[in-house]
Design a binder for these strands. Structure first.
Ligand SMILES: Nc1ncnc2c1ncn2[C@H]1C[C@H](O)[C@@H](COP(=O)(O)OP(=O)(O)OP(=O)(O)O)O1
Ligand SMILES: [Mg+2]
Length: 445
DNA sequence: TAACGTCGAAC
RNA sequence: AUUGUUCGACGUUA
């Protein structure tokens, strides 16, 4: 016992050297390189880094060890977040990303095993699917399934930007004894930012949205929230700054929301987003793009609308893009999106979506063919007889109506569209939902 | 099983 | 132009 405790002390105090290990640093660099991200405030691209590192790593390592290394400010880039709002990214330099990544790799092994079972965001081996499934399982427990079940759906306001430095460092000090490492992390927090107009801005609070270490720091801070929710015996699931608490009724839920809001503000100096946070009946609680309806996971109307909108954009730009190219784009987009949502898509939705997609693609071809002469030629080539072709090719009906026309349908059959490269959504859905085939006989991977 | 690459989703 | 963490799918290779 005495030996293991002493050993642990040693490892804790040696964390900094663990970060600086050549294998750890090269792993960190590999990751930064693989991400292929943009340059930071110094303008150094990923491609420039190996040369720079060969020349300067020794002196940088020395400065890091002496505690005299000064991280560069992050580069502030505003990206649209919908509804006219913007997300302020903080992009560290390539060098600082490597260093932060190296720190994260060491700290994650120390901290992640101690995190709550009910926390899912930014954590290795844990996914959004597991989080929503955990929520579903909780809702099945006695007392949470019925009509009375209400959910506190909580989200923090500009979460990363509002992380309190003092609170963050105090929390880190509880688990990290190495002063050099704490010092370095503190410097990263205070590095500041260069705004798009070139002016410097101090960072009095916040972890950069874009720092490789930031998600882990966020979880280390909110671990205290998890512990508090556990202490109070709440049925909750957290994904980053987004968490749900299942309650036995609307009044209890309302009390919990008020209480947790106050606790977060007082204890962690974090603000609950008043507009995003609310108490709703279980069926109306949207979490990670899903909700729980009649004990099943379902994608939200919003998720479906967003997916359709994306398809619309891909199939819109009729100018200059071949149908084949459009379908390649559709293929790879829908493969990923359907793969994510499949667990929440009911069969009738996927059939409807598949039909809508084919119709949209027929419309694309029809528009592409344009002039009556080319329409005539294409229709004949697809095996439609001359008399019918004559009428259809000269049709002045609207395009969307033509896409439903039976002749157009016979020319471009479902099978033909699929041979041209149109993804088969129903097939894909079945492959995900029933991976073992109709008999359910084969073994799992 | 692993490594690289492309892409999707959540935050 | 747009960073990061995590999960997943597909492709190439052995
Ligand atoms: N694209 C991203 N890049 C880097 N970090 C991100 C990204 N998206 C989300 N995050 C991180 C930083 C956010 O503070 C945190 C929570 O996300 P989110 O709730 O969507 O935004 P937010 O909390 O910053 O603003 P809001 O007030 O709109 O909730 O997750
Ligand atoms: Mg938020």
């Amino acid at each position: 016992m005495e030996v293991t405790r002493a050993e642990k002390e040693r490892v804790r105090d040696d964390l900094f050297e663990q970060v600086m290990t050549p294998t750890n640093v090269t792993d960190a660099w590999k990751r930064v390189k693989a991400n292929g991200g943009a340059a930071g405030v110094d303008g150094m691209e990923i491609g420039d880094f190996p040369d720079f590192a060969r020349r300067h790593w020794e002196t940088i390592a020395a400065k890091l060890r002496e505690g005299t290394y000064k991280p560069s400010p992050v580069r502030r880039v505003l990206i649209p977040k919908g509804r006219g709002r913007f997300r302020p990214l903080g992009i560290p330099t390539v060098l600082d990303r490597v260093i932060q990544q190296a720190i994260a790799q060491v700290l994650v092994e120390l901290h992640d095993p101690t995190f709550s079972e009910h926390s899912y965001g930014f954590r290795p081996g844990r996914s959004a699917h597991q989080a929503i499934e955990a929520m579903r399982t909780m809702s099945l427990r006695k007392g949470y399934g019925g009509r009375r079940c209400h959910v506190v759906d909580c989200d923090l306001e500009t979460f990363f930007d509002t992380v309190n430095h003092q609170k963050m460092m105090a929390r880190l000090r509880e688990s990290v004894a190495d002063e050099r490492l704490l010092n370095l992390i503190g410097k990263f927090l205070k590095a500041g930012a260069i705004l798009p107009d070139g002016t410097y801005e101090e960072s009095q609070s916040g972890v950069p949205q874009g720092g490789p270490l930031s998600p882990l720091l966020a979880n280390i801070l909110l671990d205290e929230l998890d512990k508090e929710l556990e202490r109070r015996g709440h049925a909750f699931v957290r994904y980053a700054d987004d968490f749900v608490i299942l309650c036995h009724g609307p009044r209890a839920a309302a009390r919990v929301l008020v209480s947790i809001t106050r606790w977060l503000s007082r204890r962690l100096r974090l603000t609950v987003n008043e507009t995003k946070s609310k108490v709703v009946p279980l069926a109306e609680a949207a979490f990670l793009g899903f909700c729980i309806l009649r004990k099943k996971v379902r994608w939200t109307d919003r998720s479906r609308t967003k997916l359709k909108e994306k398809v619309r954009v891909i199939t819109k730009r009729t100018r200059g893009v071949s149908p084949q190219q459009v379908m390649v784009d559709l293929q790879r987009h829908l493969r990923g999106a359907v793969n994510y949502y499949a667990c929440g898509i009911p069969y009738r939705d996927i059939v409807e979506l598949d039909g809508w997609l084919r119709r949209r693609m027929r419309l694309y071809y029809w528009k592409q063919w344009g002039r009556p002469r080319t329409r005539r030629r294409k229709l004949l080539a697809l095996g439609i007889d001359r008399a019918e072709v004559h009428m259809a090719s000269r049709s002045r009906k609207g395009h969307w109506r033509m896409s439903r026309n039976s002749l157009v349908h016979r020319a471009m059959t479902d099978a033909w569209l699929h041979t041209q490269g149109l993804p088969d959504l129903v097939k894909q859905w079945v492959a995900i939902r029933y991976p073992n085939g109709p008999k359910g006989s084969a073994k799992m991977a």
